[in-house]
Computed example of a mutant assay.
Amino acid sequence: RLDPVVYLSSAFSYCISLIAAMADYGCVLSGSRALNFFVPGSVDETSDWDFYVNGYTSCVVGMMNALEVSGVKWADMLGDRVRELLNAEESSISIRVGEAWNAVGNPGRDTDELANFFGTLLPDALRRNIDLSRQDEFKVLKRNGDVHFIFPSRDLPETTDEENDPSIASGSDFSVLTGYLSRNGRSTKVQLIICHAYGRPQSCLQVISRFHSTPVQCFLGGFGAGHMFYDKTASKTGIIWNPKEESLRRARLRTEALNKYRTRGYDLKQQE
């Protein structure tokens, strides 16, 4: 049980190579799947595999490749979606702001149309709507040969899905690449969470240190596994850290995330 390779092999292929890549690229597994390594029974069938990697492009690409070799199929890659949009007579897609900003920094586009979209049209549209959260979504429409961007009004309530928003754990913004792992006829979500603040890369441990409560302040990486509050967590108790100022939406989702761990048997008390 204490061997990370054995633990990961329950879901992933070529786990020794995956662990080596995690060490090379500064990536760790965290969240409920890492917690389950220390305290079995902390996950259910819906639990994601959340890998955190620092925001340097080479590290992100390296971990994408390593996870793909290990069985992850990346879902709905933005370049493919935009290519289909541009090739259609009329079409529309939805894109998260964080996903869009992350794609702007990727120069690898194989057609002039794609290069123009990601190099000029998209960044210009994002700069005109700089006040949007990275979790907001906007639409891209193709009509009569022209591309149009429709951004949400700031007067509308923000909505998001906690399962797709790992920033709730730490109160930080992330870019998230989503994939799926199929094993024994069952599909499980895998997220590669790119750690940065205002575009500047952060280390994974910086992010984990700001998670909402002590049970999830743990990691499994290429250099080992660790828990910041193992004694408390082993007895299924924990502290909820007092958050900084947060929106009503984030506070609600934070509460939902905490309740998820309470239903899994954790006794969580507010920080005094």
Rank of each mutant, 00 (worst) to 15 (best):
W101A: 11
A115H: 14
S91A: 14
N102T: 00
E84G: 02
L122C: 13
S94L: 03
L114H: 05
L86S: 09
L122G: 11
S92A: 07
V82A: 06
A88Y: 03
N129K: 01
N102F: 05
G119M: 02
N102R: 14
A103E: 08
V104W: 02
W101K: 14
N102C: 06
A100I: 03
A125R: 05
R127V: 15
N116Q: 15
A125C: 14
N102Q: 15
D112K: 14
A103F: 00
G108H: 11
R96F: 06
G105W: 03
P107E: 09
R128W: 08
L114E: 10
E99S: 07
E89I: 10
R83W: 00
V97T: 01
V104S: 07
L114Q: 09
D110I: 09
E113H: 13
V97I: 03
D124N: 15
L126W: 03
D112E: 13
I93M: 12
L126E: 13
V97C: 01
G105D: 13
I93Q: 02
F118V: 06
A103D: 06
E89W: 03
D124P: 02
I93H: 05
N106S: 11
A125N: 05
N87M: 12
N106Y: 07
G98M: 11
A115E: 14
D110K: 04
L85C: 12
P123N: 04
S92P: 00
L122S: 04
S92R: 08
L114G: 03
A88L: 07
A115N: 15
N116A: 12
L122H: 06
I95Q: 01
A125Q: 02
A125T: 07
R127W: 07
R96A: 08
E90M: 02
N102G: 07
R83L: 09
L86G: 06
